[in-house]
Amino acid sequence: MKTTFKKLAMPAVATASALALVACGAPADDTATDETMADETSVAQEPGTIVAVAQGNDDFSTLVTAVTAAELGETLSGEGPFTVFAPTNAAFEKLPEGTLETLTAPEGKEQLTSILTYHVVEGAIDAATLTNAIESNDGSYEIATVNGGSLTATIQDGNVVLTDAAGGTSTVTATDVAASNGMIHVIDTVLMPG
């Protein structure tokens, strides 16, 4: 049975990962006003877009380069909401040698766009919602991605594991990184649409 996520309204809760992306240095002197301190606090509690969060984390520098090459930055900075299963730099390093260079070249843009949009789902889906969906569907949940393909989510050894169309798997290693236009879940392997 194929099930797709419905758009969910999620509260804007800053996670520790998102807070680490905002530089909140101490004021140069002790004459900072209460208003200035209130402004700094409100900035720290409101994460940026999915792209801004990724740009602020060195572990996603390869993903940011790929999103830029595919010209998806504006889309993923849009209203959303989106859920992104974001591969780390180490995940991209698992690709066969030369693959990333080929994909980020102008002639690889269409394939790169297909791969990247395969990691994106409509709606802000938090870890609890995803886990409940897996458990309520006999341990396997099909997720429709924005590129038209699907991922299969299961739980193995207490972790959510995504299986792609090619039969490859990726483990979710961190969850619920909040963004102003959705949610990021960190994965350890790049998923392939086919």
Rank of each mutant, 00 (worst) to 15 (best):
G123Q: 10
D176G: 13
T104W: 02
G25R: 09
S77F: 05
A16C: 13
F92Y: 11
V43G: 08
V172H: 03
M1E: 12
P27Y: 00
A179V: 00
T131I: 10
K94A: 09
A90L: 13
V190P: 04
G56A: 08
T3S: 14
A144I: 02
T99I: 08
A9F: 11
F85M: 12
V161D: 05
M1Q: 09
V22M: 08
A179H: 01
E135L: 09
A20I: 06
P11W: 09
P27K: 03
V177N: 08
L103W: 01
K7W: 11
E97W: 02
M37N: 13
E74V: 12
G108E: 01
D29K: 04
A38Q: 15
D176A: 10
G98W: 03
S42L: 14
D30Q: 12
I143E: 01
G167P: 11
T189I: 06
S114K: 13
L162S: 03
L72F: 04
D34K: 13
I143W: 00
H119I: 12
A124G: 10
S114F: 05
T169H: 01
G167L: 06
N132R: 12
P87E: 10
V43L: 13
A69K: 03
Y141K: 00
K109G: 02
A128Q: 14
T189E: 12
M37F: 14
I155Y: 01
V67M: 12
T189F: 07
T173W: 03
N147H: 01
D164P: 00
P106D: 10
A91N: 04
L162N: 07
L76G: 06
T154K: 10
T62C: 07
L151Y: 06
L95M: 09
Q55L: 07
Y141I: 02
G80Q: 09
T3V: 11
T102V: 11
A165H: 05
S150F: 03
A38R: 13
S42D: 13
